[in-house]
Simulated assay, not measured.
Amino acid sequence: MKYLAPCLALALLATPAMAQSLGEKTGINATLGISPATEDFVKQAAVSDMFEIQSSQLAQERGDAADKSFAATMIKDHEKTTSDLKAMVSSGDLKVALPTELDSTHQSKIDKLKSLNGGDFSARYQLDQVSGHKDAVSLFERYAKGGDHPKLKEWADKMLPTLRHHQQMAQDLSTGKTVGKH
């Protein structure tokens, strides 16, 4: 068992074209600190934005005052990153297809949020925000450090302070602290 992770890491490194997608899908790349492939990064960043926007729109309807304030910032900021990604794709800088819908994991989270109200909604929304921003920071850090598309790598690095701030805001929200704006 103690040899499983190193063997898996070697297998992933030995087949980088295939491993990136599998590694990102399974979370092994994040665990090992491996940079995602450009296509994986763009897909995950776009899905993360869609989830942040959709879940925050629900929070605007169902959340408490703190959720609504946080959600307004999430919607504004994630619409901006979505716009940035779309601009890079439409300009031809990025030769990848942007997803048009959530993946099954994120859609399940939205469906769960839709079934909740009041305190149950707030607790789940806040948990999803902490988890989602932790994952986003990891994704952007890894791509900024080792991505293979210079313009996208620079953009990922530029977005990190905002994502880290979002992560702190989400943590503060989930612990009942007053959430500051940036």
Results as ranks from 00 to 15, higher is better:
2 K>Q: 13
7 C>S: 12
7 C>M: 09
11 A>R: 09
14 A>Q: 14
23 G>W: 06
24 E>V: 10
26 T>F: 07
28 I>W: 15
29 N>G: 10
30 A>Q: 14
31 T>D: 04
31 T>F: 05
31 T>K: 09
32 L>R: 05
32 L>C: 11
34 I>T: 09
35 S>Q: 04
35 S>K: 01
35 S>G: 03
37 A>I: 12
38 T>Y: 02
40 D>V: 09
40 D>S: 15
42 V>P: 09
43 K>V: 13
44 Q>K: 15
48 S>N: 13
48 S>H: 14
49 D>N: 14
49 D>S: 13
49 D>W: 05
52 E>A: 11
52 E>F: 04
54 Q>V: 05
54 Q>A: 13
57 Q>F: 07
58 L>S: 09
58 L>N: 11
58 L>P: 06
59 A>Q: 07
61 E>W: 04
62 R>D: 11
62 R>T: 08
64 D>M: 02
65 A>L: 08
66 A>V: 00
67 D>S: 15
67 D>E: 08
68 K>F: 04
69 S>T: 14
76 K>Y: 04
78 H>F: 09
79 E>L: 09
79 E>K: 13
82 T>S: 14
84 D>V: 08
84 D>F: 08
85 L>F: 10
86 K>L: 06
87 A>H: 10
88 M>P: 08
89 V>N: 11
91 S>G: 08
92 G>F: 05
93 D>K: 15
93 D>W: 06
93 D>Y: 12
95 K>M: 12
95 K>Y: 06
96 V>E: 14
97 A>L: 13
98 L>V: 07
103 D>T: 07
106 H>S: 11
109 K>E: 14
111 D>R: 00
112 K>W: 02
112 K>L: 08
112 K>S: 08
113 L>V: 12
114 K>Q: 14
116 L>T: 04
118 G>V: 04
119 G>F: 00
120 D>T: 06
121 F>Q: 08
123 A>E: 12
125 Y>C: 06
126 Q>L: 01
126 Q>N: 06
129 Q>D: 01
129 Q>N: 10
131 S>P: 00
133 H>C: 03
134 K>P: 00
136 A>K: 05
140 F>S: 06
141 E>P: 01
141 E>A: 07
142 R>P: 02
151 K>N: 08
152 L>F: 05
152 L>T: 03
155 W>G: 02
155 W>F: 13
156 A>G: 08
157 D>F: 00
159 M>L: 13
159 M>C: 11
162 T>A: 15
163 L>W: 01
163 L>Y: 04
163 L>V: 00
166 H>L: 04
167 Q>E: 02
168 Q>H: 07
170 A>R: 04
173 L>D: 00
173 L>Y: 00
174 S>C: 03
177 K>M: 02
179 V>L: 01
179 V>P: 02
182 H>F: 06
